[in-house]
Computed example of a mutant assay.
Amino acid sequence: MPELPAADYPADVRERLDRDAREIITRYPGSRSALLPLLHLVQSEEGHVTRTGVRFCAETLGLTTAEVTAVATFYTMYRRRPSGDYQVGVCTNTLCAVMGGDAIFDDLKEHLGLGNGETTADGKVTLEHIECNAACDYAPVVMVNWEFFDNQTPESARALVDDLLAGREVRPTRGAPLCTYRETSRILAGFPDERAGAVEATGGAGQASLAGLRLHRGETPARVVGQRGNPPQNEAGLYDTPGTPSPADHPSSHDAPERTAESGPDHPADPVADHATEEGR
């Protein structure tokens, strides 16, 4: 059975989207380069990328609907079906998982009665597991509409979703104030976030990441790992961060690398010298 054509937007919505689309397209040397922000734009209208939105992007940029659909289905930030006002994503990549991300995700599934990608009956919260969002120094991380909630536990994550469901104010650990997924999509389309406090908000790297930068610059002495049988030289408190112990209490943290010969004196790491010795025999 042939597929029915997608309906068009109401005239006032189409006029507004046309105006916004023209503004977006002028930022790029070629119009088709504007496809990603245009997909965010149509997503901000209905909360997900509909067939109407796909057709709008195709007509506006002179593409086929197949070309637009190929992009919309490739990137996970574009939703293809209705979802919640708040996308609650739990990172389950390696570091977040071992730090408790898997436990948080399982706990939220039970607490909300949802599976991965499912939405609460009131349409407020969609739960999903997400890939790494480059916040490993704050693991385990939960994101809501791509804003960071760091160093989470099952208890704090449950409280977070309960606040979202109850309509209480929720503030990310860092970054801009939280807004709905539609509002987030419009911001990602490239339009200014004019909400109070949004411009001043910043994220920033965690102290664990900055410790490596300080070591590289020589601003902080490297911690030397002890030889076999000898305790490591700990500098208690030097690398403390909220929620993580000092190396004195957690010796595997921030270990400086050793030369192989020093870590295994019975197995020298210089094959050239060893070869020369063999030839001289």
Score class of each variant (00 low, 15 high):
P29N: 12
R55V: 07
S44M: 05
V71W: 01
V88H: 02
A58L: 00
R81Q: 13
I25F: 07
A70D: 07
E59V: 01
H48K: 06
R27G: 03
E23N: 12
S83R: 11
T69L: 15
T92P: 00
N93T: 06
G62V: 08
T52A: 01
T73K: 10
T64S: 14
V54M: 04
V98K: 15
V88S: 05
V90C: 00
R32K: 13
R22T: 09
A34L: 03
V88M: 04
V49K: 09
S44C: 05
M99P: 01
V88E: 00
R51I: 05
V71K: 08
R55L: 12
F74P: 03
V90K: 00
T26Y: 04
C96K: 04
V88I: 01
F56L: 08
L95D: 10
L35M: 15
N93I: 02
T64I: 00
L39P: 06
P37S: 13
T76H: 09
P37C: 09
N93P: 01
E67R: 04
M99C: 12
R80E: 07
F56D: 14
E59W: 04
R80W: 04
A70T: 08
T64K: 02
A70P: 00
S33W: 14
R27K: 15
T65I: 07
G30V: 13
G53T: 04
S31V: 08
P37T: 08
Q87F: 08
R81E: 10
P82C: 06
G47H: 07
G30L: 11
C91N: 09
A34Q: 03
P29F: 06
H40W: 15
L17F: 06
E45M: 09
T60V: 05
A72Q: 11
M99L: 13
V68Q: 01
L38H: 11
P37Y: 12
L61R: 15
L38R: 15
D20Q: 13
G30A: 13
H40K: 08
Y78W: 12
T60L: 06
D20A: 12
R19I: 03
I25R: 13
C57N: 07
L17E: 10
D20S: 08
H48S: 10
M77A: 08
L63T: 01
L61A: 03
A72Y: 02
E59I: 01
T50Y: 09
L39K: 10
Y28K: 11
H40A: 08
T50G: 11
T65H: 06
T94H: 03
V49P: 10
V42K: 12
H48D: 11
H48E: 15
S31H: 15
T92F: 00
T73V: 06
V90P: 00
S44H: 10
T76Q: 14
Y75K: 13
D85H: 11
C57G: 10
V42S: 06
L38Q: 13
M99K: 14
Q43F: 03
A97V: 00
L95E: 14
E23D: 11
P82S: 09
A58G: 01
C57E: 04
Q43A: 05
T26S: 10
Q87S: 11
A58M: 01
C96V: 01
L35H: 02
T92S: 00
R32I: 03
H40G: 04
V54Q: 11
G30D: 12
G47I: 05
G84C: 07
R27L: 10
Y75W: 14
R22E: 14
V42F: 08
M99W: 01
N93M: 05
V42N: 06
T94K: 08
Q87C: 05
L63E: 05
T60I: 04
